[in-house]
Write a protein that binds this DNA or RNA. Structure first.
Lengths: 145, 145
DNA sequence: ATTACATCAGTGTATCTACACTTAAGATGT
DNA sequence: ACATCTTAAGTGTAGATACACTGATGTAAT
């Protein structure tokens, strides 16, 4: 017989609650850079991957493609990323502009402070195992249904 | 000397990515109930706490108060929650209506399927330790700054 | 009583999120 | 060549999130 779960143990709720609270912390640290935590993550990915298609970038960020499209519009308008032609006439490649690279440079030490603060708060062990669990989730969730 | 962190190990990014992906799973399961994962979590809290102030509810959900206000507007318009006078003339108490309770009843087995699916996917051990870590995060994050 | 402070809730604005649907272009089979 | 399928991206719509600010009510200090 399938066990009845306790709604307080909902993985979705607990993930989203932690997400909300932690995002507020990182956003506060990142404020002087002008980047949100979402934009910072996007810029980090772009910096590591180089010019990349929207679909590929969305996959890499575990983000719905159309969500990324909207998020890109903001930073494109600010001149922080450029979107040019891709491999073929369908796809378009996203790249960091010089201004985008500069914003990332400025954000990095701020992010580092937030990150160090989180590691200290949770302790390195808890922090590490949390990260491991979250990566497992991110890998497993898309296989559901 | 403070260690330089690796941006790929960002707690915020990994939390939000997992959050996005898992929310999609739960929302797909909850679809026939008409409730989103956020609304489901709200209804579970209301069901457990009984009529509760907006500020208290927000605290309990680890959600910004003004966010909850907007979320409440939707379900209030649908007649699923009622918002009446609270302890004093400032506060207002939120309660589940009969229609709200019915929606929760309908959603519960759907949620249970999603939850069981997640437990199976991660394995009970990983699932349990993830939950523990997330609760630690939710408790610790608000103490930062 | 009056002033000062704290608490509770709502609004303006902006970002983040994703489903359903559409359009355009490449790939495949006959 | 054509029809079909697949892939890449954008739009309409709607919900989720939170900061800064406002207004109203309660509480405390003098």
């Amino acid at each position: 017989m399938p066990k009845i779960q306790n709604p307080g143990d909902c993985a979705c709720f607990n993930l989203r609650r932690a997400s909300r609270l932690v995002a507020q912390v990182y956003d506060r640290y990142l404020l002087p850079s002008g980047l949100t935590n979402t934009q910072f993550a996007l810029f980090v990915a772009l910096s590591k991957l180089g010019p990349f298609s929207i679909t590929g970038l969305a996959e890499s960020l575990g983000m719905e493609r159309t969500t990324l499209t909207r998020n890109l519009k903001l930073v494109e308008r600010q001149g922080l990323v450029g979107i040019g032609p891709g491999k073929d006439a369908r796809s378009r490649d996203v790249r960091l502009t010089d201004a985008g690279k500069a914003a990332l440079e400025k954000a990095m030490p701020l992010w580092n402070q937030a990150q160090i603060r989180m590691v200290k708060t949770l302790g390195p062990d808890h922090f590490g195992s949390l990260l491991t669990e979250l990566r497992t989730v991110a890998e497993a969730a898309p296989t559901i249904q």
